[in-house]
């Protein structure tokens, strides 16, 4: 690992081997292992739900559904397909997106300007400690994207919009949106030192 790469840290707080082995125990029905998983991931799951769904009560419901889903399908986690944290956050994002897409999306979400805001608001609710580090890094790397990449990427992920909706919101051709999101995400990956 080259010492000159400043942002690449040896151990990522979000995807250590711990969570993988905990999930193996959860798969065997061990509730104490599940509690440890909860402690590691609940803040991320809830935070993402809040970001996408926004309404606190609905976000809490989504977060609970996600965590229960982690318990139910722990046997299905396949470590060859990615980290445990990513598996969990994929479930979380999908549930959150399902919630906003199935609901009357227009009234339940704020308008484009709010959703596309790059600033990650500091909520009145206490933030978790590790989030501050992650937040700084993500902010820095988002700042390195072009405005158009950043806008498309944050609308899709934090806004929970499909790329077709993003295309409509930004009035940009779908092919361009696909490329913009992919290019932006690849730049984020490289900036944050994610090993693929």
């Amino acid at each position: 690992m080259p010492a000159s790469v400043p942002f690449r840290e040896p151990a990522e707080g979000d995807s250590g081997p711990d969570l993988e082995s905990l999930l193996a125990h959860v798969a065997r029905g061990e509730q104490t292992a599940f509690e440890a998983v909860y402690d590691q991931v609940a803040g991320r799951v809830y935070g993402l739900a809040r970001k996408v769904v926004r309404d606190p009560a609905q976000s809490e419901e989504v977060a609970q559904e996600v965590l229960l889903e982690v318990w139910r399908s722990a046997c299905r986690f396949d470590p060859t397909r990615g980290s445990a944290m990513t598996w969990i956050m994929m479930i979380a994002h999908r549930r959150a997106v399902d919630r906003v897409r199935s609901a009357t999306a227009e009234t339940q979400r704020e308008q484009k300007s709010a959703a596309s805001s790059v600033t990650i608001e500091v909520d009145e609710v206490a933030e978790t400690v590790e989030a501050n580090l992650e937040r700084e890094r993500v902010r820095r790397c988002l700042g390195a994207l072009t405005d158009m990449q950043r806008e498309a990427l944050t609308l899709a992920y934090y806004g929970g919009y499909s790329y077709r909706e993003v295309g409509g919101l930004l009035n940009v051709a779908l092919g361009t949106i696909k490329t913009r999101i992919r290019d932006g995400l690849i730049r984020m990956r490289d900036c944050m030192g994610v090993l693929s």
Binding site: G43, R44, R135
Partner: peptide, 14 residues
Amino acid sequence: ETATRLAGAVAMAP
């Protein structure tokens, strides 16, 4: 994995 980092940046105590 990169998207997971985006999620980590908005973590919030439930």
